[in-house]
């Protein structure tokens, strides 16, 4: 096994606030890691650091054998190998579904229109949205938009997919269709880091659950270990709260 992501002593501050405090984390090829933890724990920040949307104040991050730099062409070329899926979908509203998926393929990978569209159609079929190819994002439901966003990220042939609460903005009845796509992706062996509150997904799909709290990793292990038998104080408190809610 080889590490796709390797974070070493990563520190991230926002002004006086230390959000990530010397965090170490490795993600192996084909591994699905689910990040959980209370609000403000730094889950989003960690994901954003991994693809350089946030710069770091200390430590190193290596993705696919290449050390992340803070800006420039190297960062761009690394980013195209890291797919990112946002809570708010962030589809380009002025582009049709198909163009949302072909834009970066053509601009970044230099694929021809035909190649890019063929790849886009293949992915749309995979997420079950072939008939929406010519629709504008605004015409799609949240679940459909998120599936297009996943297809858009996959079109770049990433070695790693990052998901930041991909179902949190969705109506409950639309959550399932997005999780199903993610499940399929995991089964095909995609390396994934997923921030989610969907504990069922974590239980069923995660190889490893990482519980973050107070700027660090409070606990990690198999879903069974972390979700059923947490050993840390923070882990117990967080899961008790979840249990209390649901």
């Amino acid at each position: 096994m080889s590490a796709i992501v390797s974070m070493q002593q990563v520190t991230k501050r926002f002004g006086p606030l230390t959000v990530l405090d010397a965090v170490d984390l490795e993600v192996q090829q084909g591994e699905v890691v689910v990040l959980i933890g209370p609000s403000g724990a730094g889950k989003s920040t960690l994901l954003r650091c991994v693809n350089g949307l946030e710069g770091i104040d200390g430590g190193t991050i290596t993705v696919d054998g290449q050390q992340l730099v803070q800006k420039g062409r190297e960062l761009n070329s690394l980013r195209r190998r890291i797919g990112m899926v946002f809570q708010q979908f962030n589809l380009f509203p002025h582009l049709r579904v198909i163009d949302n998926i072909t834009m970066a393929q053509r601009d970044v990978l230099g694929r021809s229109r035909e190649e890019a569209e063929a790849r886009a159609r293949e992915l749309l079929a995979r997420v079950g949205l072939s008939e929406k190819e010519h629709a504008y994002p605004e015409r799609l439901s949240g679940g459909q938009q998120q599936r297009v966003a996943i297809a858009r990220a996959l079109a770049m042939d990433p070695v790693l997919m990052l998901f930041d609460e991909p179902t949190s903005a969705l109506d409950p009845e639309l959550v399932g269709e997005v999780l199903q796509v993610m499940r399929d992706l995991a089964e095909e062996g995609m390396t994934m880091v997923v921030v989610t509150h969907e504990m069922r997904f974590a239980r069923q799909v995660a190889d490893r659950v990482v519980l973050m709290a107070d700027g660090g990793i409070a606990e990690q292990g198999t879903p069974e270990q972390v979700l059923e038998h947490p050993t840390s104080e923070r882990g117990r408190a967080f899961l008790a709260e979840l249990g209390g809610q649901g």
Binding site: L53, S77, R81, I82, L91, F92, A104, D107, M156
Partner: peptide, 15 residues
């Protein structure tokens, strides 16, 4: 978020 979505696809600032 749209800027970030574009950058996360590897698009440069200019693109």
């Amino acid at each position: 978020g749209l800027d970030e979505a574009s950058r996360s696809l590897g698009m440069s600032w200019w693109q």
